[in-house]
Nucleic acid binder design. Structure first.
Length: 573
RNA sequence: CGGGGUGUAGCGCAGUUUGGUAGCGCGCUUGGUUCGGGACCAAGAGGUCGUGGGUUCAAAUCCCGUCACUCCGACCA
């Protein structure tokens, strides 16, 4: 490819809205161009990179017996009503009417389409297990796109769906896929990624893992143990919280006036926050009359994902203002209105004397003791883990890091086959709902992750396996006839040898060429110049290490092929 | 959805407070001199100042509306 003709504008300055490294570098290198919020065009280098990632994913999916298919982008409402997701998914799903006034939607995931396809074709257990996957554009109308390609509304995704006769068979396959995912991320050149247990969320199902790239710009919080390999998404992480030790006290009503926050009340009473009880008010989603109050120790935070699991309902922050049954700022478990759904965190069970709201203005209780005063209360783990809490496995200290989710796998179970009525005949003639797994990888997010992890102050540093071109060929003084002849000849020879070359054929200053080469990040830079040709040599520089060495012009093709082979074998090891 | 910010040339910005008919750097075009880490000289092209309305002799600038983008939070199959 000739750089002079490439539709790809490099800039010195990043767009003002680009804040994180991957966004800045991909924009500056001209790989992406924003069209609307969270919607991007990709130029040829970026598209080539995307295709290389897709092909690696394909190889690994095919290797675990995946069958590549293609589901539609646009689907009818009826299909999504079978799983009830037409109604339960919010405005992140784009809905519209076709010319016949029929309700349609844009696919944001394809469980329904996968079950629809499988349901019409698979009728016998002998056809299982099987896995179908696709690589396709998804559209999710995100409330807040951000970070360039990290969180977008339209993106390319690989999504896979497996069908099984038994839970054991699903589990076996699930871990084959787990291994394939590790190979994929390694092969595309990511280094600091981990798998973690995650919340299966609204997908349904039980066991789920996320693959996370650890980076400070990540949107997810990950809990890791310093001493063992315990690690989990904040949403499901468990920790053992240090006990708040104190003496038993009598239950006493005290006047607290206008003091409402944990801070204010504890300051007034001269106690630490860990001896108080925090109340967080929610409403059941879709029914703001139904109030949920979660109680935890004053120094802890509610983990809403855990809370949702306990009450098996979706919740939203309560915004009903001060109602008659809730004295905001003075809410407590003792004698609370029975119509309210209450959940108590396990941290509260062990405190001998708690400060709690009195459920009326201007008063709190001190000395509240659940065992004595509310013996039938049940306790659940609904609090967020904090850095420094104790590991539930080994007793070590937990720490919290940020990560970008680069892939996820779920053991779905029969949620979709059941709701959509997919049955298959077993050996004894009985019918059963196949057990499903599903497995996703965002391609655009993988590109951003590579840029985020490998980029340096000069620009992108692309792994050999996914770089749009393997070699960036830079003739200096291309107005010099010998340079031009030798450079074009080398360009042709490399192409003939199967090497992918980006050729900077512009008659421009060395500094510009070097800066563009650094910015665009091809793994190998080759310089042909009057200086190098004086000794009949070329100069070969490795982008990643900045190492530079001269080789005889006649050896260049071989040397380059060796470097490519070496770097590829590192990634495939 | 709640709270902040910004819209002026392809990109980055100044000009807005105090209204007077639009400018700088990079990039682009042409010619010349240079040229192994973003060269120099000269001459050019490019913007109805996001958009609609209002005030005024006169609006990028003041007033009202609206749209877009963005940051923090909520949401996120």
């Amino acid at each position: 490819m000739l750089l002079s003709k490439l539709v790809c504008e490099r800039t010195k300055d990043a767009p003002q809205d680009a804040k994180i490294k991957s966004h800045i570098l991909l924009s500056r290198a001209g790989f992406i161009k924003q069209v609307a919020g969270g919607i991007y065009s990709m130029t040829m280098p970026c598209q080539r990179m995307s295709k290389k990632i897709q092909n690696i994913i394909r190889e690994e999916m095919d290797a675990i017996d995946g069958q590549e298919v293609l589901f539609p982008v646009v689907m009818p409402r009826e299909l999504w009503e079978l799983s009830d997701r037409y109604n339960t998914i919010g405005s992140e799903m784009v809905r519209f009417k076709d010319r016949n006034n029929r309700d349609m939607l844009l696919g944001m995931t394809h469980e329904e389409a996968a079950v629809h396809l499988a349901n019409h074709i698979v009728s016998s257990y002998t056809q299982l297990p099987m896995m179908i996957y696709q690589i396709q554009t998804k559209f999710r109308d995100e409330a807040r796109p951000r970070g360039g390609l990290i969180r977008v509304r339209e993106f390319t995704m690989k999504d896979a769906y497996s069908f099984h006769t038994t839970k054991e068979d699903l589990e076996k396959y699930y871990y084959r896929c787990f291994d394939a995912y590790n190979r994929i991320f390694k092969r595309i050149g990511l280094k600091n990624f981990i798998d973690i247990k995650s919340d299966s969320g609204m997908m349904g199902g039980s066991i789920a893992h996320e693959f996370m790239l650890l980076t400070e710009v990540g949107e997810d919080s990950i809990v890791l143990c310093n001493d063992c390999d315990y690690r989990a998404n904040m949403e499901v992480a468990e920790g053992r919280i240090n006990k708040a030790e104190c003496e038993v006290e009598p239950l006493t009503e005290v006047f607290t006036g206008e003091d409402k926050t944990i801070d204010e009340v504890c300051t007034r009473l001269g106690k630490k926050a860990e001896f108080s009880c925090k109340a967080v008010v929610y409403a059941v989603k879709g029914n703001s009359e139904e109030v949920v109050i979660a109680f935890t120790r004053g120094d802890l935070e509610i983990n809403e994902a855990k809370l949702k699991k306990v009450i098996k309902r979706d919740i939203v922050p309560y915004d009903g203002g001060v109602s008659e049954v809730i004295a905001c700022g003075n809410i407590g478990p003792y004698n609370i209105d029975k119509s309210i759904i209450t959940v108590y965190d396990k941290s509260l069970a062990e405190v001998n004397a708690l400060i709690i709201g009195a459920n009326k203005p201007e008063y709190h209780y001190t000395g509240f003791n659940f065992k004595r005063d509310m013996p039938d209360a049940e306790f659940y783990d609904i609090s967020k883990v904090r850095a420094g809490d104790t590991c539930p496995v080994c007793g070590g200290k937990l720490r919290i890091e940020n990560g970008i989710e680069i892939g996820n796998i779920f053991q779905l179970g029969t949620k979709y086959t059941k709701s959509m009525g997919m049955t298959v005949a077993n050996a004894d003639g009985s019918l059963f709902n196949p057990i499903m797994g599903c497995y996703g990888i965002g391609v655009g997010r993988a590109i951003a992750s590579i840029a985020q992890e490998s980029g340096d102050e000069k620009g992108l540093v692309l792994p050999m396996s996914v770089a749009p071109w393997q070699v960036h060929l830079c003739p200096l003084r291309i107005d010099n006839e010998e340079v031009a002849n030798k450079a074009y000849a080398l360009y042709d020879e490399l192409k003939k040898a199967g090497v992918e070359v980006l050729f900077d054929d512009r008659d421009t200053a060395a500094g510009i060429k070097f800066n563009d080469a650094d910015l665009m990040g091809m793994p190998i830079r080759v310089v042909v110049s009057p200086k190098s040709l004086a000794t009949d040599e070329v100069e070969i520089t490795i982008r990643r290490t900045k190492e530079s060495q001269k080789y005889a012009y006649s050896d260049a093709v071989k040397v380059i092929k060796d470097i490519i082979a070496e770097q590829m074998s590192e990634l495939n090891a």
